[in-house]
Write a protein that binds this DNA or RNA. Sequence first.
DNA 1: CTGAAAGCGCTAACAG
DNA 2: CTGTTAGCGCTTTCAG
Lengths: 332, 332
Amino acid sequence: MRDVAALAEVGIKTVSRVVNREANVSASTATRVQLAINALRYEPNLLAGNLRRSGQRTQVLGLLIPNVSNPFFAAIHRAVEDIALTRRVAVFASSSDDDPRRETEIVSAFLRRRADGLILATVRPNHQNLQLEQERGTPFVFIDRPPIDLAADSVLSDNHGGAAAATAHLISHGHRSIACLLARSSLFTARERRRGFLDEINRCSIPLPAGYIVEDLTNDAEAYAATSALLDRTDPPTALFCALNLITVGAVRALRERNLHRQVALVGFDDIVLAAELDPALTVIAQDASRIGQLAAERVFSILDGTSTRRQTSVVPTRLIPRGSGELPCIS
Amino acid sequence: MRDVAALAEVGIKTVSRVVNREANVSASTATRVQLAINALRYEPNLLAGNLRRSGQRTQVLGLLIPNVSNPFFAAIHRAVEDIALTRRVAVFASSSDDDPRRETEIVSAFLRRRADGLILATVRPNHQNLQLEQERGTPFVFIDRPPIDLAADSVLSDNHGGAAAATAHLISHGHRSIACLLARSSLFTARERRRGFLDEINRCSIPLPAGYIVEDLTNDAEAYAATSALLDRTDPPTALFCALNLITVGAVRALRERNLHRQVALVGFDDIVLAAELDPALTVIAQDASRIGQLAAERVFSILDGTSTRRQTSVVPTRLIPRGSGELPCIS
DNA sequence: CTGAAAGCGCTAACAG
DNA sequence: CTGTTAGCGCTTTCAG
């Protein structure tokens, strides 16, 4: 900036004014400065500027998700990025692998870099450590999973409603023998979907044999094994509710291997690429990832702007997409 | 930091030493400082520190890709993140939507934030604007697509080899009537895959009717339409080479709609979730996205470390995964 | 082993 | 309309 000022033969503050499009610069001076900027290919140092700038804003958001390459969370990431871009804010996206230690490390890295706000899909069992930082004015918005012991904003999917809708859908097609495959029960989403499933099962007085609820599935291989075991029972289920996209993939593989994919009904949670091209096409409960990301980012900015009045928890609706696999009738 | 120093009753520089694990601090002083840090929940301001720190490193990388929620590029992102994490470097990931203007905007935002290095999947027709910045010492590594008129490192897939292998595979299964569906020809990858396809077609003296090469497909809907048109010809192809994951999705839909999916062979470029569960399962040319991301990140750091001797272009091999759709014999 | 002074590149507050 | 001075939070340099 000093070099630009020297070349344009003005004070350093005038350069600052031109760069920040402040008022009180004559047109002729402004063009002279702009010429110098172009000649020197000067890019202002945003970091240095923000150090002194009012509010100490860094124009940076931190986004913590289980995996940047998980389609659901990548879609959230994209939505956050789009909202941030309208305010010229950049986004740090990091993968926690659902590991609490890694999460702590990453959040600390965001804080060291003075991110203006954080959007977190957390796995930590508590969030007391964030309270002080929150009181200092850093907005925290929790997505997909609520904070445990911290009063903070959150944006969640309607996990309970979606799971209940999936279960009701299977029941309405005659099924009375429905198994449920779930992710790690330490995850809020897994517990909520379990609750939705059970509530509907109980409401309709559907019997639930021991072992029909399988929990703590972490990947498609485990889901494949669990589905295989279910199908090989003497009392196999006639329908499956798969409460996670990766679980659906594993279950489909097990069904196809036994040539049962046209007999055993299936509803998955979360939409998947090519789901419509399978035979039968997959019936799913779709989550609105874009909406979640959008709401979370808007929430961060409204807290930053002081527009947000009080803490909110938003629940984003899910949508049942019938495509075939969930409409297979009960044949036994 | 001043508050910590006051509480621990030491000089500010001593706090700095403890924070940065520098030598020359007595154990007793160190613990006193550490206690104060914990009490105040002090997080050092990395931005302020980097302003003066030698080398002016910000510990930040900028990653520009077409879309953070595209599975191929999201996998690259994840790999870059993992390499960066080992050096405590954070990653800005931004989506260009393959829009040159948006790309320019994003690159400039990275530069203003003084990213230590940039990894770019570019769509710009020229890169002269980056030359000065490169000479100033900022490492640029191009992924997926090489820079046009800038001497810089790049990490690419073996597009030509993969496309040739796909084509040879179809030919070896008896096909003599093969259509090729391609992405925007402004993209390096599309042109290379076209070249691979054509080279193999010519090498084997396979006839190529007019219209068998469809270019500039941007999404699955366009691919669906283009495939439909091909299949409705009086001389329809017996095999398809789909040079992009989204194109494969659209083509599969068109085939299934006509109930031709078990007759017309198909090889796709890029692997897809559920590809193995389709009927027939999809034969694809898989790219090694993780490897691309890993190599690119390592390259950035080796330039930063001064370890890299001279500019390199790495070509990451592709791999043909036969699953069924590419092995359908020619029946006409 | 410890701390005071200077300064990274920029903006805030004020004076001309 | 323009420039000067101080200082953001930290690291460097150098003197105790």
